[in-house]
């Protein structure tokens, strides 16, 4: 047996012991993501976060919209919902409110959450709906072939910006902060440990929590703009990332291949929508009101 085959078999054996495997629907592998795509890396971090969180996984539900990242729900071995384009957040809102014991996570892409779904993001954050939103931001519409997104920086070529993008992009952490999110952080898929840690921390918090994950799309975004492959993008993340915890989110907008500010920007407490409703009606109706979704006096 050759040495390389030995090594190969050893790696197969290792992969069978992979600690994230129990979190995946193994009968759905292989996944659809391209070589060099960062979504899988983010999912790996999420699985580690779930593993470290100590949460009862029967009570964790994942909701995705449409797009490459929107396929995440289908690969995770949780109660999982692949909804319509842009509407993962309102679906998650209904799921959480009808069954408050669930820990509900929305996992979707930048186009899904901030173009077609933008309005829902603003309002769920404003209401402090008790959900965690993870946005994998690859600056493009991958599933449909590389069209301009509300996150695309000024400059790069997209199929619907064939001479380079001239629209101003969103600064996602700033939006989340301004709308009232209780937790806002950004990491890249280079920062696997920090990302897994942030996901675990956010899973343990209440209220509307938001994590932006910068991720390469080598097939469409990088290749079209001659930025190399997935590894080249990760090198860029490594070289140009600056950790600035607690920095004003106004300052964390992303330019084309420019500096990337990462870190935890917001961590605060606000009553969730259900807590506000229960408190308000308890005050208004007194003992005639039975708090909703509360077990043994605990939320």
């Amino acid at each position: 047996m050759s040495e390389s085959l030995d090594l190969h078999l050893a790696s197969v054996e290792t992969s069978l012991d992979n600690p994230v495997l129990p979190f995946l629907r193994q009968d759905r592998i292989p996944h659809i993501w391209c070589p060099g795509c960062g979504i899988g890396t983010s999912v790996n971090c999420f699985c580690r976060a779930l593993s470290d969180s100590g949460l009862d996984l029967d009570k964790v539900a994942i909701v995705s919209g449409i797009g490459c990242t929107g396929r995440t729900a289908g690969y995770l071995n949780l109660d999982s919902f692949h909804t319509t384009h842009g509407r993962a957040i309102p679906f998650a809102t209904g799921l959480k409110l009808s069954n408050p014991e669930l820990n509900v996570v929305v996992y979707s892409g930048d186009g899904d959450l901030f173009a077609i779904g933008g309005n829902h993001f603003f309002h769920a954050a404003r209401r402090n709906m008790d959900i965690l939103v993870i946005c994998v931001n690859n600056f493009t519409y991958g599933m449909t072939g590389g069209q301009v997104a509300p996150t695309t920086p000024v400059g790069p070529t997209q199929t619907t910006m064939p001479y380079g993008n001239f629209e101003n992009p969103f600064n996602l952490p700033f939006i989340a902060d301004a709308c009232g999110a209780t937790y806002v952080s950004r990491w890249t898929i280079y920062h696997v440990r920090q990302l897994a840690k942030a996901m675990k921390e956010a899973l343990g918090k209440k209220g509307f929590r938001f994590i932006e994950v910068m991720s390469p799309c080598p097939t469409l975004y990088s290749r079209r703009n001659r930025l190399g492959d997935g590894v080249d993008q990760v090198k860029y993340y490594k070289e140009k990332s600056v950790i600035k915890n607690g920095v004003d989110t106004k300052e964390v907008g992303l330019g084309y291949q420019g500096e990337i500010v990462v870190g935890k920007f917001v961590d605060r407490e606000r009553p969730t929508w259900l807590e506000s409703m229960n408190a308000h009606y308890s005050h208004h109706f007194g003992d005639a009101f039975q708090p909703y979704g509360v077990k043994n006096g605990q939320d």
Partner: peptide, 17 residues
């Protein structure tokens, strides 16, 4: 909700809850 798109999918989250 913020619009009918949201209302008509939030109820479906409600069912699966």
């Amino acid at each position: 909700m913020e619009d009918e798109l949201a209302a008509s999918i939030a109820i479906q989250g409600g069912v699966w809850g």
